[in-house]
């Protein structure tokens, strides 16, 4: 049995009394310990899919199960990193993490929670910023804290919604490598679902890439990424088959956009 099973999922959203189909007939299995990216152009419903996994949104049809049990809401088995506002602005970096830890590990004393927080801040390279508030940190640092919080909560599953989408190109590369290092370094690898619109990011990070087409979102193709780990940006680009895979994804992404040209709406 796969860790996450999505069967014939349909999702709708209502805007000014009109119903739109965001996702239609999406079926997908995600195995334990697998790093899966969901890629597609803006408005393809990839964030809707993730919010259903988060338990913030609910399916209009089909089923989504984790360990065989349907999702009934948000849960402490899933850690989440959003693009913005994962952190609480009134808590400093350490308190943000300690607050997350407190929700999943009730028995810990305050001092022990701080120790966990500080250890994870060290792992993301922010030892000197434990007492800084989010507004005193750069966008990249804020995402490091958010990732540290998700890891510190030690959930089975990590759900990440374009976490590096607002970070400049150079720092994004650094963050991707950090994320892989942390994920690889865990005793038991977490199951990760990572939403992005960046092809290179998806290839670099994932075991499997799921491509979604535009409105309504359906799975166009599932691609296994064959490259060996640990991965390195400079090496990966020189690996045989990298550009072939990249070009294939490019054309798939554009053709799924092209389908809609001539229709009522094109969102890229």
């Amino acid at each position: 049995m796969a860790k996450i099973e999505i069967k014939n999922l349909r999702a709708e959203y209502v805007e000014k009394l009109d119903r739109f189909v965001a996702l239609d007939d999406v079926s997908l299995d995600i195995n334990e310990g697998e790093f899966v990216s969901i890629i597609g152009s803006s408005g393809c419903g990839k964030s809707t899919l993730l919010s259903i996994l988060q338990g913030l949104n609910f399916p209009a049809g089909g089923s989504v199960t984790i360990d065989g049990k349907p999702i009934t809401g948000t849960g402490r088995d899933r850690g989440v990193v959003f693009q913005h506002y994962s952190l609480f602005p009134w808590m400093n970096a350490r308190n943000n993490i300690a607050f997350g830890v407190k929700q999943v590990r009730r028995g810990l004393k305050r001092r022990e929670r701080y120790e966990v927080a500080d250890a994870f801040l060290e792992r993301v390279g922010l030892s000197e910023f434990t007492r800084k508030y989010p507004h005193q940190l750069s966008g990249g640092m804020q995402q490091r804290v958010a990732i540290a919080r998700a890891l510190a909560m030690d959930t089975d599953i990590l759900l990440m919604d374009e976490p590096f989408g607002a970070i400049d190109a150079k720092n994004r590369t650094i963050m991707q490598e950090l994320l892989l290092k942390l994920w690889d370094g865990e005793e038991r690898r977490k199951t990760v679902v990572f939403v992005t619109h960046d092809i290179d990011e998806a290839i670099f990070l994932s075991d499997k890439i799921v491509m979604l087409s535009n409105s309504p979102g359906t799975v166009v193709k599932e691609i296994d990424v064959p490259f060996a780990r640990p991965r390195d940006h400079a090496e990966l680009v020189q690996t045989e088959g990298y550009f072939k895979l990249r070009n294939e994804m490019m054309s798939l992404l554009f053709s799924s956009v092209g389908d809609r040209i001539g229709g009522t709406e094109v969102v890229i």
Binding site: T74, R76, W90, F99, G100
Partner: peptide
């Protein structure tokens, strides 16, 4: 209070009391 803040709190699995007094109260302060 920003919906994104509430969503973030929900995904941490906070209870009702924590939500109201540790999240909504400071956000509205």
């Amino acid at each position: 209070v920003e919906k994104r803040i509430l969503d973030s709190a929900k995904t941490l699995g906070v209870g009702h009391g924590t939500m109201l007094f540790r999240v909504v109260l400071p956000a509205a302060l």
